[in-house]
Design a protein around this nucleic acid. Structure first.
Length: 339
DNA sequence: GTTT
DNA sequence: TTTGACG
DNA sequence: AAACCGTTCAAA
C-alpha cells in the first residue's frame, strides 16, 4: 500500500474517527444479532474514513456534505462533528461501559468471534484479559457449553500470544513460507493445482496466515489432507476435515490453511479465498443485481440455478464485463467501477 | 446504523 | 442439529 | 419499510 504521502497529521481526525467507529462496530458485534447491521454500518463508515484522502475537517459542520460520504448518514455525521468539537463521542463512551471492552480485541483472533467473547463474559463474569487468564488457569472453561478441547486450546494460545503481541508476518516471509508449502503440496499424488491465496497473494505488507487452494478429484481429498497435516513443517494441527485443514507451522508459529476444491471450481475458490473481504462483497453485490449469485464454487443464475462460471477468475470477471483484476488491486474500493 |  | 467463523 | 453477501464446514 502506498504511503499516504506526508499528510498523516492532516488526516489525523480521519484516522482517529475510523478507529473509534471500528471499535464501536466491535461493541455492536458483541451486543449480538440484533445489532449486527449497526455493526456493519459503523464498519462501513470506518472504512470510508480511513480510505479518504482529504481531511474530514474540510466538511466543517455541514451535515449534508458529510452525509454524501458512503456509509455516513445523519447520525454518524453528527458523531463526526461531535468528535471534532469535543474530542469524544458520548455514544461510544456509553458503549464502553456496557461491554467488556478489554476483551473485544480477542475477536481479532481466528476462531474467536463475538459469540465466544459474549459467552466467556456471561459465564465467567470476566471483564479483562487478566480475569480471563485466571479463569482459564482454574480450568473453568470446560464447564461451559460449546467449549471443547479445541476451543480451549486456541484460547490459551491466544492469551499467551497476546502477551507477546499478535504478530502478522512481513509479506516477504509469508511469501517464502507459503511458496515453499505450495511446492510441497504440488508434489502430492492427486493434486492438480496448488496456489497461494489470501492476503499473501494480494501482497499485503503484512500477512496473518498462509492460505493455500488445492484442486483435486474428490476421491483424493482425504489423502491430500492427511498428507498435509503430516508435513514435516507442521507443528500442530488445529483442525482437519474432509475439505480443509488448519495447522501451525514450526517456523514462526505461522498458521496455514489448506482448502481443496474440484478443478472446475478453481477460479471461484481462488477468488473467494484471495479476497479482500470487501472486494468479495462488492462483487457478490454486483452479481446479485444482475440475477446471479457467487459462492466459492462458482457463479450461478439465480432462477435457473445454472452454473455460469467458476473455472477461472478471468471467466468470472468476464461474466460481469470486468477485466481481470490483479489480486493486488482487490481492495474493495473502486476497482469494480472502472470495468 | 445506512441505503433504496 | 446448531452455530460460529470466514474472505 | 425492508434490505443489508453468501456458503459451507468443522466443532461442539
Amino acid at each position: 500500500m502506498p504511503q499516504v504521502l506526508s499528510s498523516t497529521t492532516i488526516l489525523q481526525h480521519n484516522k482517529e474517527l475510523a478507529h473509534i467507529f471500528r471499535q464501536m462496530s466491535d461493541c455492536y458485534k458483541y451486543l449480538g444479532p440484533d445489532e449486527r447491521f449497526r455493526a456493519i454500518a459503523y464498519d462501513t463508515a470506518s472504512k470510508t474514513l480511513s480510505n479518504m484522502t482529504e481531511p474530514i475537517d474540510i466538511y466543517g459542520h455541514d451535515i449534508k456534505k458529510l452525509d454524501e460520504l458512503k456509509g455516513v448518514g445523519e447520525r454518524i455525521a453528527g458523531k463526526i462533528i461531535e468528535y471534532i468539537d469535543t474530542g469524544r463521542i458520548q455514544t461510544f463512551e456509553k458503549l464502553k461501559q456496557q461491554v467488556p471492552f478489554a476483551l473485544l480485541e480477542l475477536m481479532d483472533v481466528e476462531g474467536i468471534g463475538p459469540a465466544t467473547v459474549r459467552t466467556l463474559h456471561d459465564a465467567l463474569q470476566v471483564n479483562t484479559r487478566d480475569d480471563l487468564i485466571h479463569a482459564v488457569e482454574q480450568g473453568k472453561l470446560s464447564a461451559i457449553k460449546g467449549f471443547g478441547e479445541k476451543k480451549i486450546n486456541t484460547l490459551m494460545k491466544v492469551l499467551k500470544l497476546d502477551k507477546q503481541e499478535n504478530k502478522r508476518m512481513p509479506l516477504q516471509l509469508a511469501e517464502r513460507i507459503g511458496n515453499e508449502l505450495v511446492r510441497f503440496v504440488e508434489k502430492m499424488p492427486g493434486v492438480v493445482q496448488a496456489s497461494l491465496a489470501g492476503s499473501a497473494r494480494r501482497k499485503k505488507e503484512t500477512v496473518g496466515d498462509i492460505d493455500i487452494i488445492v484442486t483435486a478429484e474428490r476421491r483424493n481429498w482425504k489423502k491430500i489432507i492427511r498428507r498435509f497435516v503430516q508435513l514435516p513443517q507442521v507443528k500442530k494441527v488445529l483442525a482437519s476435515g474432509e475439505t480443509k485443514a488448519s495447522v501451525i507451522l514450526t517456523e514462526n508459529d505461522v498458521q496455514a490453511d489448506i482448502r481443496i476444491v474440484h478443478p472446475d471450481e478453481y477460479g471461484a475458490a481462488l477468488l473467494y479465498f484471495t479476497g479482500s473481504k470487501e472486494h468479495n462483497i462488492q462483487l457478490r453485490s454486483m452479481a446479485k443485481r444482475k440475477g446471479c449469485k457467487i459462492n466459492e464454487y462458482g457463479v450461478y443464475d439465480v432462477h435457473t440455478n445454472k452454473r455460469l462460471a467458476g473455472e477461472t477468475e478471468e471467466g468470472i470477471y468476464r461474466l460481469f464485463n470486468l477485466p481481470y483484476i490483479d489480486p493486488v488491486k482487490r481492495l474493495g474500493k473502486d476497482e469494480l467501477q472502472a470495468g
